[in-house]
Design a protein around this nucleic acid. Structure first.
Lengths: 209, 209
DNA sequence: CCAGTGGTTGACTGACCAGTCAATCCGGAC
DNA sequence: GTCCGGATTGACTGGTCAGTCAACCACTGG
């Protein structure tokens, strides 16, 4: 009846990926079994191996699908004629909205890939670094045109900026921070305000290094 | 001959813990076997279970030992009569030096506990949060006495600050950032400079929320 | 010299699970 | 209607590994 009932070919592949997101988010990649994915997708165990070479490849696919979108979006934001601060806001906004739209997927990507230095993080290191490099590029240009100070290196600023975003998402993932439409928008503003504006009331002590 | 040869009782326990740090750091908690720990410690397999109820308990012990030191240090720093910026510098300094002194241990704690939302992170959530709360307390007092702006909430500032530190450590853990005496000291300064000073050249846009 | 106690050993077991594969289904081509 | 090939099924296998346990060792105190 519904297309889900008669789904075939690539549709089933998609169903497996979506099911994997749910299962990985709930139990974690290592703790869940391939049969959990198959069950969640209402599909036979073996079909997972028809579409993917291994359990790992399912996670790889999820990560790459999403991270490539992120890289494109950052590139596109950077192409626009905007103050660096607004560009950073747009990036924070996109990532926070990604979480708002699909918290499970973002949880899986952050917990199982981005922060997993012993497994998938290492595998996708090059891809992950591309995002940092793009952000660093934005900072570098802003420092060149004088809108950002030169107190820290662009690469370092990118790390701190992305680190702050990820820490906030982690706060939501761990249920440490309240989640809601207001909180999401507030977070975007706070991240940019902290990194760009700083905490100091006066900046007498701030000198270029 | 050497005491390691004739070690007994609690010494062996310590040897197991130290060996676990090496093994967890090299292969990751999930990927390594209990026999790897025993081999690294030059101890029989079963002895691990004489001193610890389970493989999990070994990691729990490592984490709690170190995190409690961190909590004490932060408390002590906060007790001193110092500008908030210097307190944050002291905290960043302690964490960076912890990494400098024992990178494997810090790697294990960050990768396997602090950032592991699906396993040990959840277990130790309360303990982890205590550190954030202490940092937030420092920010809050600084905002009250006017040395920090009130643009963001203390809890959020704590998250961003700790997130920046962890991201830098992660950079070292992933071999993304160069490691060395200079880099370590530079990192401490950069972290505090970014979070306290901010990136903006002028702060026209910075208004209290 | 002989228990007794606590540390130490490592072979073994039971459970678990990724990945395989032979069989079956189904829709289209002719 | 028959045949073909890709999609789909799920029982089964092989290997792994956490945790157990019965035996062994080394010191101590009587």
């Amino acid at each position: 009846m519904a297309s889900a009932q008669r789904a075939t070919g690539p549709d089933k592949r998609r169903m497996i990926l979506d099911a994997a997101v749910v299962v990985f988010a709930k139990k974690g990649f290592h703790a869940c079994r391939v049969s959990d994915i198959a069950d969640e997708a209402n599909v036979a165990y073996g079909l997972v191996y028809h579409y993917f070479r291994s359990k790992d490849e399912v996670l790889d696919t999820l990560f790459l699908e999403r991270w490539n979108v992120l890289l494109e979006v950052i590139t596109e934001i950077d192409r626009q004629q905007l103050p660096a601060r607004d560009k950073l806001y747009a990036i924070a906004s996109f990532i926070v909205d990604s979480y708002r739209h699909d918290p499970d997927l973002m949880k899986v990507i952050i917990v199982e890939v981005t922060r997993a230095a012993n497994s998938f993080g290492r595998t996708h290191l090059t891809t992950i670094r591309e995002a940092y490099a793009l952000i660093a590029g934005i900072v570098e240009k802003a420092q060149a045109d004088g809108s950002f100070r030169c107190a820290v290196t662009p690469g370092f600023a990118a790390l701190a900026f992305y680190g702050a975003i990820e820490q906030v998402l982690t706060g939501w993932i761990f249920d440490m921070l309240p989640r809601g439409e207001e909180e999401f928008d507030e977070a975007k503003a706070f991240i940019v305000e902290t990194i760009c504006g700083g905490l100091d009331a006066d900046r007498a002590s701030a000198r270029a290094v």
